[in-house]
C-alpha cells in the first residue's frame, strides 16, 4: 500500500458516498445516469469475486464489501425506490456498445485464460468506460448539479491518484500490470475534459454548464 493508492481509494469511497447521500437526501436521482451505476455494479461484481476465495487484508476485504454494498444500494435507490425521478430521456447511452467490446477484449487480451482472471480483466476494461453514460447525460442535459460534478471530480481524482500509485509501484516495487495501467490511462483521459469544466466553472460557483 502507498499513499497514492490509499488516497485514491478514499477519494473513490468519497465519490460513492457523495452520490448515495445525494440520492438519499434529495430522494431523487435526477441528472444521474442509472446506466453508469449499473456498469459500476457489474464492475465490482465481476472484480470482487475473489472476496470469498482469497484474503489479502482486512482493508482490502472491507473496502470491497463497502463498494459492493454502496453500488447495489445506489442501483436499488435509482431503479426501485426513487424510480419515478429517474431521467430516462437523457440517460440513453447504449451500454451494450461498452459491455460487448469489454467482453471481447477480455477474452482476447488477458494475463491468464481462467474464469476469474477473464472476469477481472473484463471489469478492468469496463471500468475504464463505465462513466461514459454519465458524461453523455451531462452533455445531453447541458449541465450537472454541483453535487454530481463533485462526484465526478472525486472519481477523477481517484483515477489520477491510481496513475501515481502505478508509477510509484513501478519505481519502488518493480511491479506493474499493463492491462490495469492502459485501461486506467484511458479512463483518466475521459475525465480530463470534465476536469477542465469543473475547475473553470464549478469552483467559481457557477453551475457546470456545457457550451450548447
Amino acid at each position: 500500500m502507498n499513499i497514492f493508492r490509499l488516497l485514491g481509494d478514499i477519494s473513490h469511497l468519497l465519490a460513492i458516498i457523495i452520490l448515495l447521500r445525494k440520492i438519499w437526501m434529495s430522494r431523487s436521482c435526477a441528472g444521474i445516469s442509472g446506466k453508469s451505476q449499473l456498469l459500476f455494479g457489474l464492475v465490482y461484481t465481476t472484480r470482487y469475486l475473489d472476496l470469498i476465495t482469497s484474503y489479502i487484508s482486512l482493508y482490502n476485504s472491507v473496502m470491497k464489501v463497502v463498494f459492493l454494498a454502496a453500488s447495489y444500494a445506489t442501483i436499488y435507490l435509482m431503479y426501485v425506490k426513487f424510480k419515478a425521478t429517474y431521467d430516462h430521456n437523457h440517460d440513453t447511452f447504449r451500454i451494450e456498445f461498452l459491455v460487448v467490446p469489454a467482453v471481447a477484449l477480455a477474452l482476447l487480451i488477458n494475463h491468464d485464460f481462467q474464469v476469474v482472471e477473464i472476469l477481472w480483466t473484463f471489469s478492468i476494461y469496463l471500468e475504464s468506460v463505465a462513466i461514459l453514460p454519465q458524461l453523455f447525460m451531462v452533455s445531453k442535459t447541458g449541465e450537472a448539479e454541483s453535487i454530481t460534478s463533485h462526484y465526478l471530480f472525486a472519481l477523477g481524482v481517484y483515477r489520477g491518484l491510481y496513475l501515481l500509485n502505478w508509477i510509484y509501484r513501478f519505481w519502488a516495487e518493480d511491479h506493474y500490470d499493463l492491462i490495469a495501467i492502459v485501461a486506467g490511462v484511458v479512463q483518466t483521459v475521459l475525465y480530463c475534459d470534465f476536469f477542465y469544466l469543473y475547475i473553470t466553472k464549478v469552483l467559481r460557483g457557477k453551475k457546470l454548464q456545457l457550451p450548447a
Partner: peptide
Amino acid sequence: AQDNETKDEL
C-alpha cells in the same frame, strides 16, 4: 516484473 498473481488493488 509483470506480476498479476496478487491482485491487491481494488
